[in-house]
């Protein structure tokens, strides 16, 4: 396992987990990031299913494509029925293995609510977005967050996986 600290290898953004309750938007985002942006997009329809999915991935034994199983970035819708974006974020932060994952918030509210983007997030994308530039914006936020000193924010780096 590679600790999520120190010098990161120059890794391109490849795998994004989208947490979005609306299937149509899931589809549009999937197209915008996948077709237009060339990213691998995993999608979940809510916070709980996303956590379950992540837990499932983490439960599997390490493999060569371990890095590919886990998303490098989470695109999280703020307003969702059931567990909403903020709760999901809290749950993510509560799991030491997932705490280091950068999160980009998406919101359809007219104005970003207080604290967003904030702790545990690296940016905010307002709905509606331009599907043709969405992937570029996500990549920009990813790159910006990877600059030294910018991430993983205040939380101590957490080792994931076995062997350590």
């Amino acid at each position: 396992m590679t600790p999520l600290s120190g010098n990161w290898p120059a890794v391109d953004l490849e795998h994004v987990l989208l947490i979005e309750d609306d299937p149509d938007i899931r589809q549009v985002v999937g197209l915008a990031l996948g077709d237009v942006g060339g990213l691998r997009v995993s999608a979940c329809d809510g916070g709980q299913s996303a956590l379950d999915t992540l837990d499932g991935w983490l439960a599997e034994p390490p493999a060569d494509d371990w890095m590919h199983r886990l998303p490098q970035l989470i695109l999280l819708d703020l307003m969702m029925p059931g567990m909403d974006g903020r709760q999901t974020l809290a749950h993510l932060g509560a799991r030491s293995t997932l705490a280091g994952l950068p999160v980009v918030m998406m919101t359809a509210r007219a104005h970003a609510p207080a604290g967003v983007p904030g702790e545990g997030t690296i940016g905010l994308i307002a709905k509606p977005f331009d599907p043709m530039t969405l992937a570029d914006r996500v990549r920009d936020l990813w790159e910006a967050a990877r600059r030294p000193g910018q991430w993983p924010w205040h939380r101590p780096p957490v080792a994931t996986g076995g062997g350590v």
């Binding site: 149509d24 549009v28 237009v36 509606p128 331009d130 599907p131 043709m132």
Partner: peptide, 18 residues
Amino acid sequence: RTPITAIHGALGLLAGGR
């Protein structure tokens, strides 16, 4: 906004030739 986002995204993709 949610449906509009979907419409907007879909139209954007259409316009983008996707």
